[in-house]
Simulated scan of single mutants.
Amino acid sequence: MSEWKQKRFWKAVSVAETENGFAVELDGRRVKTPAKAVLAVPSRPMAEAIAVEWDAQTESVNPNMMPVTRSANAAIDKVTHQHAAVADMLADYGDSDLLCYRAEMPTELVLRQSEIWDPALDWAADALGVRLEPRSGVLHTPQDPAALDHLRGLVHEMTPFQLAAFHDLVAMSGSLILGFAATKGWREASEIWDISRLDELWQEQQWGQDEEAQATADLKRRAFLHAKRFYDFS
């Protein structure tokens, strides 16, 4: 990761169209990933967002201020070479989707889960052609294998850049369905994030807010919203 330790040496940042998409150049030299591949991305808006991040660096490069660059690096250096494995890992969320495991009590929480989570499952039935079925309790009950195979196929169709974003949307929400809902614009990403946190928000209402837990949730929320933005760029 020596790339991240270098001092700023460039004066101008630009975007150049290439045979593989769009690259970012520093004084005419193309930016490379940590694995030394050319950082070529699929859209000009993504490349321009990366260029803004590089142009914002001052004395030294700070990766914490470069989320689009880091996501693009992950797509190129990691997901491209492990596409099938990453897709399978994310598709597996469908068989234990957050939206399908419901509380048995108290009644108010049961009703709230139904009110807020059922519309997402209904949306998936219409938009994705698959209906996952909710269960009461935490014991695993398999979903219809044909439904899971259909969802798996949709995940495998994603490009490495889409899959890099989808990874965070699914892993942070705990829901394959909400991941798809975010990518397809079912609702605003911030609302989808809140839907994924229904249980945590319920606990906060009952027992109060924990500052440390809230700080962690805020970080995850920003990462979730970034993943949606990155997916839209791709």
Score class of each variant (00 low, 15 high):
109 L>I: 08
110 V>A: 04
112 R>F: 06
112 R>V: 06
114 S>V: 11
114 S>L: 13
114 S>E: 15
114 S>D: 14
114 S>N: 13
115 E>F: 04
115 E>A: 11
116 I>Q: 11
116 I>A: 05
116 I>F: 08
117 W>K: 04
119 P>T: 06
119 P>Q: 04
119 P>F: 05
119 P>G: 02
121 L>A: 08
122 D>V: 08
123 W>Y: 10
123 W>F: 12
124 A>G: 04
124 A>F: 08
124 A>S: 12
125 A>K: 05
126 D>G: 02
126 D>F: 10
127 A>W: 10
127 A>I: 05
128 L>Y: 06
130 V>Q: 05
134 P>L: 05
134 P>I: 05
135 R>Y: 13
135 R>K: 14
135 R>G: 06
136 S>V: 10
138 V>N: 14
138 V>W: 11
139 L>V: 14
140 H>A: 13
140 H>E: 12
140 H>Q: 13
141 T>Q: 15
141 T>P: 11
141 T>C: 12
142 P>L: 05
143 Q>W: 06
144 D>I: 05
144 D>N: 12
145 P>H: 07
146 A>H: 12
146 A>V: 11
148 L>D: 11
149 D>N: 13
151 L>F: 05
151 L>Q: 03
153 G>T: 01
154 L>N: 02
154 L>Q: 15
154 L>I: 00
155 V>Q: 02
156 H>R: 11
157 E>N: 12
157 E>A: 15
158 M>R: 13
158 M>N: 07
160 P>D: 07
161 F>H: 10
162 Q>V: 02
166 F>N: 03
166 F>M: 02
167 H>L: 14
168 D>C: 07
168 D>Q: 11
168 D>S: 13
169 L>H: 01
169 L>K: 00
171 A>K: 07
172 M>H: 13
172 M>E: 06
173 S>Q: 01
174 G>K: 01
174 G>F: 01
175 S>T: 02
175 S>W: 00
176 L>P: 04
176 L>Y: 06
177 I>D: 05
177 I>P: 02
180 F>T: 02
180 F>V: 03
180 F>C: 04
180 F>W: 10
181 A>K: 00
182 A>N: 02
183 T>G: 07
183 T>V: 14
185 G>I: 02
186 W>N: 01
187 R>N: 07
187 R>A: 12
187 R>D: 08
189 A>T: 06
189 A>I: 04
192 I>N: 00
192 I>P: 03
192 I>A: 01
193 W>M: 01
193 W>K: 00
193 W>H: 05
195 I>N: 00
201 L>M: 15
201 L>G: 10
201 L>A: 11
201 L>N: 15
202 W>K: 07
202 W>I: 05
202 W>Q: 03
203 Q>K: 15
203 Q>V: 11
203 Q>N: 12
203 Q>T: 09
